[in-house]
Amino acid sequence: MNVFRFAGDMTHLFSVLVLLLKIYATKSCSGISLKTQELYALVFLTRYLDLLTDFISLYNTVMKLVFISSSLAIVWCMRAHPVVRRTYDKDQDTFRHYTLVAGSLVLALLFHDRFTIREVCWAFSIYLEAVAILPQLVLLQRSRNVDNLTGQYVFFLGAYRAFYILNWIYRYFTEQHFSRWIPWIAGLVQTGLYADFFYYYYLSWKNNVKLQLPA
């Protein structure tokens, strides 16, 4: 464990806590894409298949449980909670996220470390996570005013993978055999997708105005 990875995990955890706070405090999920949340739940479920087989550390197991349970809880809230579900922008959240699932699956079947169920699912989860934010970014462009908590949620979600890239650079230079090109490329794509969001987030912060993504 190195400081970049720990910072990445904490930033990721913080983004989930901000989203839970927003939904719990405002009893609203307006501006949040259910499709992105469903994709994240699928990412965690396919990536953490080893939860019950490989024990790496208490930290690793606890964090996996937190990510799986929080993503499922958010999806449940947005689909079934009597109050929250009515605030979901159903007609705005129209990204065809099944294409992202299909594309990631094809990529995982073509490019993986080893052709085993676990490794193909792992690669699938890495590719899917790289594009899972797209429905959310499209929804942000459509919804006029982005509330602060939603903006902070997306910001921390983007920042966490940037920390992971620093972690991979660090591990590449400190551990002999460490060179995983799959998360490398997917992580760069993932962080790249946030580039314009980060730019407009920075402008809104600098000019102290509401975050507004150009359509």
Partner: peptide
Amino acid sequence: TQPEEPHDEL
């Protein structure tokens, strides 16, 4: 192919 180490990252 990659060595057999488990995925120790989240």
